[in-house]
């Protein structure tokens, strides 16, 4: 097996999001909150969404973890501000496919900054780090659908 290169993993954009995470704050007006933890490594986040109608009016998170998990959730929250619920769901599905090595999705420019995380797919033990935020997003959308609009 070819040795994956570290430079493909630790891109400047990832380190920049890790140091200056977007939307990292408590939100008072949240309509749904998901707590997600990876007990193996201690990554722990709470994703908070304010959903209005069919739209994510606001997305914030708090928590801590490695550069990959924190950058991925920072990029994700930036991407889903104002997105429709179905777009957010679609984004989660495409990003998950990207992490599992789907090369078609890798060409998808609409993923924006999240494409910087493509290299994670070459480091199998780190994929779950990149997905913790999107796993929380999918849970949040499910929870919202189950509980109905507020």
């Amino acid at each position: 097996m070819e040795t994956p290169r570290l430079s493909s993993l630790y891109q400047q954009l990832i380190l920049e999001h890790y140091r200056n995470p977007r939307n990292k704050a408590e939100m008072d007006e949240k309509t749904v909150e998901i707590h997600m933890a990876n007990p193996v490594c201690g990554d722990e986040i709470r994703l908070q969404l304010r959903i209005e109608g069919d739209q994510i009016a606001e997305a914030k998170f708090v928590g801590q973890g490695c550069s990959i998990s924190q950058a991925a959730i920072s990029m994700m929250t930036a991407k889903i501000q104002g997105a429709s619920l179905s777009d957010a769901e679609g984004l989660a599905e495409r990003f998950t496919a990207l992490m599992h090595g789907d090369t078609e999705v890798a060409k998808d420019r609409s993923l924006g900054d999240l494409r910087a995380l493509q290299g994670v797919s070459k480091f199998p033990v780190r994929i779950k780090c990149a997905l913790i935020g999107f796993d929380a997003l999918q849970e949040a959308l499910k929870k919202h659908a189950a509980e109905g609009p507020h």
Partner: peptide, 27 residues
């Protein structure tokens, strides 16, 4: 520094060095 232990471990692993990163079952 602010390098998370998991990132430290991944970088060391790329150099062939095996260390443990995490809470070591001692939360």
């Amino acid at each position: 520094g602010d390098a998370h232990p998991h990132d430290i471990s991944t970088i060391l692993d790329a150099e062939g060095i095996a260390v443990r990163a995490g809470h070591h079952c001692a939360q």
